[in-house]
Design a protein around this nucleic acid. Structure first.
Length: 596
RNA sequence: GGUUCCGUAGCUCAACUGGAUAGAGCAACUGCCUUCUAAGCAGUAGGUUGAAGGUUCGAGUCCUUCCGGAAUCACCA
């Protein structure tokens, strides 16, 4: 049953009975009662005064007294200024709890019939994944899970930016300086190896610019004329012409990167239903752009480059094809979007999980798609999230100021191991179990840290202040689950059934009511998280639930309880709490252990 | 310079979309393990929500101006 809905109905009829005028749900502000007052639900009566033609306090008083007499939910009320605080009956809470416990897979909403696509990750293949990618992957993956929980069919995809000038830079450096190095020959992870050459390219590029400048060339010219850059551009051209040798090298280096990425994804615990490769989609994009030229949507300059004029939309002119005919980022994104809607004609939403530095890009992309006549363009949504900053500012992969994803995950696991051993909690665990636990705790701490913040906001990561395992963290919530698991183990040993066959005369403890109240919010929180694409809503929610459970755990004894009914109820309450924690954390991609 | 976003406790983040005395965690301090896991619980202290105006019963939230910061405006991705 839905408390709020029933309450709304009761208030509405109370209002018309008392003031002989209707009150609609949208005019009612029901909010949680603040901790310092009695009650669980609060009706804000200031806006009602206008309709009741009484003062807010009198209105609240009249409503409260009427509800107490006539609503089956309301046990007591109190009025503080214009706020009507309502206390609900035990039976109401038990009813709510009974309905939750008997709902299979509570937190999974009925199917909506809608189909959506979520893109995330989408790295370039010229450098390894870093902390920013972790936020991206965890966010996109979690949003996909949350959408699934609200009943949508979801496709998780990514576009692998496997072609373009960036990968050519790594290739040039490898050709020049690599001496045939391979992951096998050097023992380096493939993505790391290719990334090293990207950095190397940049170093030599800078050196060449400096040399040219020393020779009297202007900086801007030097930046364009540096031989190593010219080489990279030539390579890109050759690649687009499918030069066999270049193509082979390109495939080779990408394979190294993919192998490296795969290991990283595995560790991150993210997956994809379908991969798109830029090398497969850019030609389609190119065709579309050329078609657009014929239709007069785009225009060609004298040098052969293709542009779109968006000055009518208050934007600029934007390049779609270079003078030498090679594609830019926008070109392939046009192709990719079209291909996706061809592959999945049923999708009603295409979500791009990409950093907010690309807001302009997506604005332009969506306008272009609309100009090209695709009606689904309006279903495209840029899930724009804030950057992860270091104390020194923005991460710069070219300058090596990055937090590497693999390293960070490893550090988290090491820290988890340290903490666990310090606390003496590895007794009775096999090596395998222990390793597994460190993984779950380390990744749990990391994921929770990155997901608990509103995605739209920029966030700070200080590598020197390692991620906590206490307080508002993943491990705190995991710990709560492990605690409950211990209780459930014991209760099953004792043969206690968590049943609710009879709850006659069962008086709930305030902490128990709080827990049920919070449990009752779960599904609306999932909806809220889905509508705003914000896993942090779930993160905050599950933290609150764990916090409330721990309060209960501290104040109320389970196995010393003499009343059989109360004992069984508490075991049941614990079991359901654990279930919700597991489900909610699962939506964030975090595993919860049974012991820790 | 144009556009967009942000500014909340020493630090990292919340605040139910305009509602009560702005909440958590970390750091600091005080209690609580002979009792279901102390990675926990309870408490103390910490704030003129960047500043000034305005809108109204009521503003961290909406409007205006100012200050400070970020992103973007590429034949980069």
């Amino acid at each position: 049953m839905d408390i709020k809905q029933t309450l709304t109905k009761d208030i509405s009829s109370a209002f018309s009975a008392l003031f002989s005028t209707g009150l609609e749900a949208k005019d009612m502000a029901i909010q949680p009662t603040r901790r310092e007052f009695n009650g669980s639900h609060t009706l804000v009566c200031f806006p009602l005064a206008r309709l009741s033609k009484k003062g807010p306090e009198q209105t609240a008083e009249a409503l409260g007294s009427y509800l107490k007499e006539n609503s089956s939910l309301v046990k007591a009320y109190n009025v503080v200024k214009g706020f009507l605080n309502l206390e609900l009956t035990n039976e109401t809470w038990l009813k709510v709890f009974r309905s939750i416990i008997s709902t299979d897979d509570y937190g999974q909403l009925p199917t909506s019939g809608k189909e959506m696509m979520v893109e995330y990750s989408s790295p370039n293949t010229n450098k390894p994944l870093h902390l920013g990618h972790l936020r991206n992957n965890f966010l996109g993956w979690s949003v996909a899970e949350i959408l699934q929980a609200t009943g949508h069919k979801v496709h998780k995809v990514q576009i692998i930016n496997d072609r373009g000038i960036h990968i050519c830079k790594s290739m040039v450096a490898w050709l020049r300086y690599g001496e045939g190095e391979t992951p096998a020959s050097s023992g380096k992870k493939g993505d790391k190896l290719v990334g090293d050459y990207y950095v190397m390219f940049d170093q030599h590029y800078r050196e060449e610019i400096a040399e040219l400048e020393a020779g009297g060339m202007k900086k801007e010219v030097a930046e364009k004329e540096a031989p190593i850059l010219k080489e990279a551009q030539a390579l890109l051209l050759k690649w687009e012409q499918k030069d066999p040798e270049i193509y082979k090298l390109w495939e080779q280096m990408n394979q190294w990167v993919y192998a490296g990425f795969e290991a990283t994804y595995e560790q991150m615990g993210v997956d994809f239903d379908k991969l798109y490769y830029e090398s497969d989609t850019y030609l389609l994009g190119k065709d579309e752009v050329l078609k657009g030229v014929e239709e007069g949507v785009f225009y060609k300059k004298e040098d052969g480059s293709v542009w779109v004029d968006l000055t009518d939309e208050g934007l600029d002119q934007k390049l779609l094809l270079r003078a030498d005919g090679t594609s830019v980022y926008m070109t392939q994104d046009i192709g990719t979007a079209i291909l996706r809607f061809r592959d999945f004609p049923g999708i009603s939403r295409q979500i791009y999980t990409v950093g907010n530095e690309q807001e302009y890009h997506f604005k332009v992309l969506f306008i272009i798609l609309e100009k090209l006549g695709y009606s689904w363009a309006k279903e495209c949504y840029h899930l724009s999230y804030g950057m992860v900053d270091l104390p020194s500012g923005k991460m710069k992969s070219r300058e090596g100021i990055v937090v590497d994803a693999d390293d960070l995950m490893q550090e988290m696991m090491d820290t988890a191991e340290e903490h666990t051993k310090e606390l003496g909690k590895i007794e009775g665990l096999s090596d395998d179990q222990a390793t597994h636990l460190y993984y779950n705790l380390g990744l749990g701490a990391l994921k929770y840290f990155l997901l608990k913040v509103d995605p739209k906001k920029r966030m700070l990561f200080d590598p020197n202040e390692s991620i906590q395992f206490q307080g508002h963290t993943g491990p705190f919530i995991q710990y709560t689950h492990a605690r409950i698991s211990a209780i459930l183990r014991k209760s099953s040993q004792l043969g206690i059934e968590p049943s609710l066959d009879s709850t006659e005369g069962l008086e709930l403890h305030p902490t128990e009511r709080d827990i049920i109240n919070t449990m009752n919010d779960f599904e609306s929180k999932i909806k809220e998280a889905a509508e705003s694409y914000s896993p942090d809503v779930i993160g905050q929610y599950v933290y609150d639930l764990a916090k409330e459970y721990n309060r209960f755990y501290q104040e109320v004894s389970i196995f010393n309880e003499e009343n059989e009914l109360a004992l069984r109820f508490r075991v049941a309450l614990s079991a359901v709490t654990a279930r919700i924690i597991k489900k909610a954390m699962g939506l964030l991609g975090i595993n919860v252990p049974d012991r820790m």
